[in-house]
Design a protein around this nucleic acid. Structure first.
Lengths: 198, 198
DNA sequence: GTCTATATAGGGATAGAC
DNA sequence: GTCTATCCCTATATAGAC
């Protein structure tokens, strides 16, 4: 913990990350298009043009934020085989989503609230180098080997989790995080493994 | 059926409604800010300025679309008393939502995908004349008389329904509407009335 | 790395003719 | 009701000094 040679003044400023943090906040609350670079620069304390030293375009900032989300789901999703997803497999994925949402809710909200902007990016990056997360989900959900009823339930479970901890926002701010997590897991179980049929 | 005096050429053009229909489509797929009036006018077949005869601003178009949603939920929501919402009351509301989504999915998607824009409208219309739907939901969800666990489940049920029939979009296009509705109702029941505890 | 100044484009909105 | 022409503003992005 001591041998660090190159220690900056107080704490790593890391301007690039600071830009991303501020952008994440503003893009989420106000929306991507409505937020101007001038506004971001204002909060940073320096000029608008300085941002262009760190990012080559406004879209580039959004892409960087998208990559943060990718980094989160990274391994989990790469190991998932859309063709052979069982109900249990889906359940595990959703439980992990609940965990991720605990510490990164804003990042998910950003994506939720700026779908159009992200889709546009995806369209422009038609160089197939980038497999979108949502596309992966959809194709997996279209797997005919799994009964339709199950697939609908999986889809509903995602919606329940996302709504329960994201859209509703701070309505449950007073609830302890652990308690909230437990309740969400219970709901997911009740959706995926209902008493009646499957 | 015959005595109509003032019959237009073929079928009521009703330019105002045509504008709204096209705007609804474009705002939903591309996003509100990204869609220009020029683009809307293009699809209408006439000039951008003509739109200003029917609407006094771009925001005014968005407001009109918001009113369409209001008209849908109208009576149901006005009769709801946020202070005395029981679990059964919520269930009824969600079942109705399922019905509304069958015929008006795009309208809900518009709101889902342009939250920021609608919130901005709501902020500007601080003249209290307009009680927002979502605000109504949130305050009702904050009712301390209802146990937290129940409130979370209600919130999840909304998410499940919205996701199951909206965000997922046309992944289940092949499923018959009636069947889809039945499945969604089942899921809602399993969420709100779980086997373990209430 | 961050600045000032500027190029360029596009958007919303209005005026006034038809 | 719809058009053309125009105003005005703000946004992204670049050039070049420090």
């Amino acid at each position: 913990m001591s041998g660090a040679q190159h220690v900056p003044e107080s704490e790593t400023p890391d301007t690039r990350e600071r830009i991303l943090d501020i952008a994440l906040d503003l893009f989420t609350t106000q929306g991507y298009e409505t937020t101007s670079l001038r506004e971001i620069a204002e909060q940073l304390g320096f000029s608008k043009a300085a941002i262009y030293y760190h990012f080559k375009s406004k879209d580039d900032i959004l892409i960087a934020l998208h990559m943060r989300l990718h980094a989160l789901g990274g391994d989990t999703l790469r190991n998932m085989d859309p063709a052979t997803m069982t109900l249990d497999g889906w359940a595990g994925l959703i439980y992990e989503l609940i965990e991720q949402l605990r510490t990164n809710r804003i990042l998910f909200t950003l994506h939720e609230r700026n779908r159009a902007a992200f889709e546009k990016l995806h369209d422009e990056a038609h160089a197939g180098e980038h497999q979108d997360l949502e596309t992966l989900f959809r194709t997996a959900l279209n797997n005919d080997a799994v009964p339709v009823a199950d697939r609908v339930r999986v889809s509903c479970a995602f919606g329940a989790v996302l709504m329960g901890s994201m859209i509703t926002g701070d309505s449950f701010a007073d609830v302890a995080p652990d308690e909230m997590t437990a309740m969400l897991r219970d709901v997911v179980r009740d959706i995926l493994y209902p008493p009646t049929a499957p």
